[in-house]
């Protein structure tokens, strides 16, 4: 466990000391701040629109971190040859991937927590009640970021960062359209949409399973069992992607 933790902390430091992160954070804070102004446009739904906009800002920032930083996570180590000084130490390639992934996950967690505090401030300004449902929504965002990070790590084993970003964004979009795809597949069970849906359902994660924004936006009750299953679903996807990435990485020349 120790090497994983050491690698994770180094990755954490590396990203936290990178100016790009602060650019992204500033962008997110501005978006969340704008949610106040945007809410004013509505006659009766100011709080809901502000909450929706604020949560979407956190969502996009977390996803951008997972995809854009994740696509460079291993590539940069190979490109700059820093990986050579690490893999000659008593560290397995599995530990390396897990350590890098854990470091970035911690960054995403920190970022979500920080932005959530800003959002809570906005909610306070709007006299909105903040309860445990917000924590569930944020957990859902973390789960989605984890899935996308796993997918990005997997793609980065055989593609360059720009292609990895394109593929991961594709997974992000399809992952959120799965329910719509299922709807059209039900309408026309014999058509090509049904086949596309079948493929997507089996090979692409359904990111709507961890999209729980409606808990806060529409005051819906929490079904803990369903949510726990969705967390398990996310972790399983992450573990699967990391295992497959490691399988490829173990066969890859890194010199």
């Amino acid at each position: 466990m120790r090497p994983i933790w050491v690698l994770a902390l180094n990755t954490y430091k590396e990203v936290i000391r990178d100016r790009i992160l602060y650019g992204l954070l500033l962008f997110a804070v501005i978006l969340i701040g704008m949610s106040l102004a945007l809410g004013q446009l509505s006659f009766a739904e100011q709080a809901r629109i502000s909450a929706n906009f604020g949560l979407s800002a956190i969502h996009l920032t977390a996803v951008a971190l997972a995809i854009f930083v994740g696509s460079n996570l291993v590539f940069k180590e190979i490109d700059k040859k820093t990986i050579m000084t690490i893999l000659v130490r008593p560290i397995s390639r599995l530990q390396f991937i897990i350590g890098k992934g854990l470091g970035l996950s911690l960054i995403i967690l920190t970022m979500i927590s920080g932005l959530a505090l800003v959002l809570v401030g906005i909610f306070a300004l709007l006299n909105m009640t903040v309860d445990v449902r917000l924590a569930w929504v944020l957990l859902g965002l973390l789960c989605e970021s984890l899935i996308l990070l796993g997918v990005t790590l997997l793609f980065s084993m055989f593609a360059r960062p720009i292609l990895v970003v394109c593929l991961s964004v594709g997974i992000f979009l399809i992952g959120h359209w799965q329910d719509s795809l299922a709807f059209f597949a039900r309408k026309n069970p014999e058509g090509p949409t049904a086949l596309v849906h079948w493929i997507c359902r089996h090979f692409i994660p359904n990111l709507e399973r961890v999209n729980w924004k409606e808990l806060v936006l529409y005051d819906q009750p929490v079904n803990a069992l369903v949510k726990a299953q969705a967390v398990g679903y996310s972790l399983a996807w992450y573990a699967f992607c990391v295992a497959l990435a490691t399988w490829i990485f173990r066969r890859k020349d890194v010199g």
Partner: peptide
């Protein structure tokens, strides 16, 4: 081991850099 023309973690100070490698081993 020292590889040819290595680039190291630029975000670390000299001390942190050596701490990192020592803790890995």
């Amino acid at each position: 081991f020292l590889p040819e023309r290595p680039y190291f973690y630029e975000h670390l100070t000299g001390r942190e850099f050596l701490q990192f490698y020592a803790r890995l081993t």
